[in-house]
Amino acid sequence: MSEPVEGREAAFQQRIERGEKIESQDWMPEGYRKALVRQISQHAHSEYVGMLPEGFWLTRAPSLHRKCVLLAKVQDEAGHAQYLYSALESLGVERDTVYQELLAGRAKYLNIFNYPALSWADVGMIGWLTDGAAIVNQVPLSRSSYGPYARAMVRICQEESFHHRQGFDLVHRLVEGTARQRQMAQDALDRWWWPTLMVFGPPDEHSPHSRQSMQWGIKLYSNDTLRQKFIDQTVPQIHHLGLRVPDADLRLNEASGHYEIGPIDWVEFQRVIQGEGPCNRERISSRQRSWEQGAWVREAAACHADKASTAAALAGDEHAQ
C-alpha cells in the first residue's frame, strides 16, 4: 500500500519481463489496463460485427454442407465475442458499457467488415483471408502478458484455424469449378486482398500505441512484421489456386525470401476508419436495429426473472415458518 507507484510499476515491468502472467486481481498500471481494454474491446466488437457479412449468406448458401459449415462458423464467432466480452468484465468493464460505445459508432472494430460480401466467394475469402490474418495476429497473443486474454486466444485460435481451412476449401472448390465460379473467386480476391493487408494496421512508423503495448507484452510483433508473415504465407496459396494477386508490383525478393508488395492505399484505410467505408453505417445501424428490436425481449426476461426470484424468496419464507 505504501509502496510508491514508480516502485510498483518497476516491479510490474519485471514480472512481465520474467514472462509471468498478469491476472485480473493483480495490480496493474492504469495505462496497461486501458491499453488492454482498447485492444480486447476492439477484438470483441470485430467478432460481433464480423458475423454480419457472413450471416447474410447463411440463408443463401448453395449446398446444405456449406450451410452447416457456415452456420457453425458464425456461431463460433458469436462465441468468440462472448469470451472476449467476459475477458473485459475481468478488467472491471461492463459488457453493456463497451457495447453502447459500439452502438454509438464510437468504438473501433476491424475495418475489413466495413466492406460488403457480394458473392458466395466472399464467404470463402473472409474465412481464408480474414480468419487467416486473424490467426497471424492472434497466435502470438496467446502468449500475451494478460492471462485471461492469453487463454481466450488459445481457444479462439484453434477455431479460427478451422475457419481458415474451411474458407480455403470453399475457394478451392470454386477454382476447380465452372468458369463462372472461377471468375467469382477472382473477383472476390480482387476485392478482399488489399483490405486484408490493412487488417494488420498502419505501418510501424505510424502506429501510435504499438511501442508501449510491446513493452507491456500485450503486443508481441509489429504491424509490418505480422503483415509480412501473412503475405509470405498467403501468396503461394493464391498461386497454388491458380488465382492472381491484384498487385502489379508483387515480386519475390530472392535474397530475403520475402514477397514485396506495391504501396498500400493508406488514404483509403483512414477514410474507412473514419466511418466512410462502403458499409460502416449499415453495420452499425444493423447492430442498433437488432439491439432496439430486442429491448422488449430483454425487459421481459428481466421482469420474469424478478418475479421468479421474488416467488422463490416467498416460498423459502413459507418453508421456514
Binding site: 450471416g55 458464425v74 465475442a81 462472448q82 430486442g294 425481449v297
Partner: peptide, 25 residues
C-alpha cells in the same frame, strides 16, 4: 438462420444458431 446476428442478445444468437444447426443436421 435469419436470426443469426440479429437476436436480442449474443447468448440468443448462439442458442438460435445451435438449434438451427441441429435441425439442419
Amino acid at each position: 438462420c435469419g436470426w443469426c446476428g440479429h437476436a436480442p442478445t449474443l447468448e440468443e444468437d448462439v442458442a438460435l444458431s445451435n438449434v438451427a444447426l441441429d435441425l439442419l443436421g
